[in-house]
Amino acid sequence: MNELYLGQIAFAFYTLIALAGGVTAVSAASLVRAMLGLVVSLFGVAGLYLLLLAEFVALMQILIYVGAVTVLIFFAIMLTRASADGGEAEGPGFAGSLRGILVVLVPCGILVPFLAVYGVAGFPTPKNVDPAQLGAGLLGPFTLAFELISVVLLAAMAGAVLLAFEKRGAK
């Protein structure tokens, strides 16, 4: 019984972190602050992964998202900003917020009733999967996806270099 309460408290804590970070990422007037909110939100979701007993996914979340993707976003802010706030100081405005809320209502208005009506009855506790099983899955039934994602990453890297490449003396 005690463990159940502990799990609920941990879930509430991580959810609070993830959602507060998400709200900051969406509403901050400065892009650097928005990126920091994204980092906080990613850490909260990593905690939720830990609660789901997916510790390998949680570690990869911290390594890939917090370690690599946010650095990329920070580079994007640094390399392009014209002013200290990155061009977000005036906010979305009334029309922008209205458009945003309307767009959010469409998928959420579909998904939430479906969840409420057709939500499956899951297990009370998550399954425990060894990381060795994940490796065996990558080398066994899911080899094609593993190879394809490497090709996608290579193509993205080559494309990024090609796009950002500047010929010497072009301008």
Partner: peptide, 18 residues
Amino acid sequence: VVLLGLGLYALVARRTLV
């Protein structure tokens, strides 16, 4: 779902590509 909604809102309402 809440994370999806927040992300969609940012996608529509933000002014900058970043």
